[in-house]
Design a protein around this nucleic acid. Structure first.
Lengths: 257, 257
DNA sequence: CGAGCCTTTGATTACGGTCAAACTTGGTGG
DNA sequence: CCACCAAGTTTGACCGTAATCAAAGGCTCG
């Protein structure tokens, strides 16, 4: 049953609303606006599509879902049905090994798309957990594939997004494989700064929604090392860090690390 | 010019032959056999396609290329035109950072497909280098995309292969992020063993074509640590290693590490 | 058959992990 | 609205794994 994969209790008000929304086919007069007017459209799946294609694409967006902080959007092992575009809020994706080892494999911000890991074996291989209250667009993959048969630009867009994910992971592998702790933290800060800027936020002052533990897991170091490294950067005048509030003082200095 | 991306000197005999082969459209009576009869078909792009689709797909394989040991199939920065399926031999893929840092991001065996990193920005982000004399099938990506518009199963197959690459990289990220040196080497040996077996070779006795340095780069450890760890495993009776010749004595013991 | 590359092993070092404790923040309920 | 408690963060002390430096032996392939 669909509810089962949502990780939202059936009794939850949001769950009921969503089930209802899913049952109702979107009306053509309201749905297209969900993409055409979306502020994150360029960064998302609809980016690069022309007018008619955007409308066709928007028809695929069956529903948007609300995920509360700490809740799971999908879990490793869940049947794969949809990919998800972040509308608001932020997520982490987590890979788990049988021995209980866990590794944060990514942080997602508005416009980012997740779930492509599920195509491989028709089940998700990672879990996605909300770092704050979030909304996502749900894109049933079979509908997407069907639509791709009729729109070559959409097909290409999916290939591009998956390729981007491959390249992103390659860069992260290099970080995990060859960089020192300081280089990792510096690269992380530069990466977050860039992505904040792309989304129209300040590149130099932002709130990290993830904990030191999650950052450490992502970077392959311990939370203590993350904290120490931030203190070190602060002493060198590269950043000002007060808990989750981070101010980048010298971005070029960070790039040079 | 096409030659420029091949990393094969124009004066080289192989280069001329290939240019000629590429100029000539494949004859319909000979080309389909190149996939229908390929021993690695199931593992490759053509896997999961039915009869007619295999023929259509085979028409995309413009040519096969020979790459000598140490030569580059494509280089980071090269214009992206094709993806490549390994027919015979083995490759490594390498990511380079500006500072000269290099990281081996993958080893490819017959049936493996590479080059999906190129879709992202229409240029390759990694380099592929032959570990021995190799042959590859060249699959021009624009032809592939065109054919995908007419075959939903082929389209799905490409999505699946790209997803598989995403999942492979996720697993490697976990290895690089949380595992000890011994765990990494053990996981590497198990992985190679499995892939050898899938290709019809012995799961317990094989020749590694890559150096300790390349293995170390792949696993995010030094070549000395690779060597020491293999010696350690040998002392514990898990493997017998004599240079590049590796014999797995106790695969379950390795899995348990 | 020899030169260069690869591999192995040893000695030492250092980076980041682990353990520990104090402090801060933020969410919850009285 | 404030107090309290749990979760998160910082900092310190110490330790261990794997990196680094070094050197000798072994393959491979021109």
């Amino acid at each position: 049953m669909f509810e089962a994969t949502l990780s939202v209790p059936a009794s939850h008000a949001q769950g009921s609303l969503l089930a209802q929304a899913y049952a109702d086919r979107p009306r053509s007069d309201s749905r297209p606006a969900s993409c055409a007017g979306c502020t994150r459209r360029q960064a998302c799946l609809a980016g690069g599509l022309n007018g008619p294609d955007v409308e066709k694409f928007a028809a695929i967006v069956h529903l948007t879902r609300v995920i509360r902080q700490g809740e799971t959007l999908f879990r490793a092992g869940d049947a794969f049905r949809s990919i998800y575009a972040v509308r608001t809020g932020s997520f982490k994706t987590v890979i788990a090994h049988r021995d209980g080892m866990e590794h944060v494999s990514g942080f997602l911000f508005p416009g980012d798309v997740m779930g492509f890991d599920g195509v491989h074996a028709n089940r998700h291989e990672v879990s996605a957990i909300a770092l704050e209250d979030c909304t996502v667009c749900v894109l049933p993959f079979s509908l997407l594939e069907k639509q791709c048969q009729e729109s070559r630009s959409l097909q290409h867009q999916i290939y591009t997004l998956m390729s981007t994910e491959i390249v992103r992971e390659s860069a992260l592998m290099m970080l995990l494989g060859v960089m020192s702790a300081r280089e990792r933290v510096a690269a992380f800060l530069v990466n977050i700064s860039t992505r904040m800027q792309q989304r129209g936020y300040s590149a130099s002052l932002f709130n990290l929604r993830m904990t030191r533990d999650e950052i450490g897991s992502y970077l392959g170091i311990t939370l203590e090392t993350v904290s120490r490294t931030l203190s070190h950067f602060q002493k060198k005048g590269l950043v000002r860090a007060a808990g989750k509030q981070i101010e980048i003082v010298d971005i070029e200095g960070l790039r040079a690390v």
